[in-house]
Design a protein around this nucleic acid. Structure first.
Lengths: 118, 118
DNA sequence: CGGAGTGTACGCAGATCATCGAACACTCGG
DNA sequence: CCGAGTGTTCGATGATCTGCGTACACTCCG
């Protein structure tokens, strides 16, 4: 965290800057719907296993194409589940764990506990 | 449990007896999907406000027809969220609160807290 | 400046879901 | 035994969602 010469600005690589939604403005229905999808569950779990801003969008191991993956990230963003920041051509992610947990206590934990069993 | 002259048997009024699914056999995805629907959220909340076996299927205040309502109850049943018992021509309901909460801690509370705000 | 790498936007196909009306099944009371 | 009350099943419809390929935008490196 020393003085770095503007490594990542606000809007960087893509047509549109990431649009974030605060967890406080998210309905329970939206949150449940976002977390119900298996692919998005994987994303959230992998994200939780890594540190903030450590993973770029393309670095996740899910069986979908880039286009679909991008859509899933948009859904998670709109559900207040993650924050994104552009760093060069990459888009880094952060799980909004504390904020989301404050809005929907216990919900994220359910997904992270991997209870996808039966 | 005194000797009652068969007030309610297993299969009673309808073509098929109610098919129940244990919460333990329910996937997180199924649970989230079941609770994501606004109509089903209403049903669960109304059910939580009443005692066990107090409410028949037709006694709920939701803006759908009987056919749709019946389907919603089936979904909730398959998600391990409620138990049904036939009593005469009526089908009484019970929220499987403890069982479901043991399987998905905190999930039901989120819905019951009426956090449907924004 | 051109090419590789990264991510988004735009349709389009397929599946799933909520909804309804109508027909059916069952129980109970007269 | 018939009619009112209750709930399910069936088939159809419209909306929504996931998935894809393709085209595009932007950054960085040589």
């Amino acid at each position: 965290m020393a003085a770095q010469p503007k490594q990542q600005t606000a809007t960087a690589s893509h047509r549109t800057p990431p649009v974030h939604t605060d967890p406080d403005e998210v309905s329970l229905e939206t949150a449940l719907l976002a977390l119900a999808d298996p692919v998005r569950q994987s994303l959230v779990r992998e994200l939780a296993g890594a540190g903030d801003w450590e993973r770029a969008c393309g670095s996740f191991d899910v069986p979908v194409t880039k286009a679909t993956l991008s859509r899933h990230f948009a859904v998670l963003r709109e559900a207040g589940l993650l924050e994104q920041r552009d760093a060069g051509p990459k888009r880094l992610n952060r799980l909004r764990r504390a904020e989301f947990d404050a809005r929907f206590p216990g919900l994220l934990d359910l997904v992270l506990r991997q209870d996808t069993t039966a």
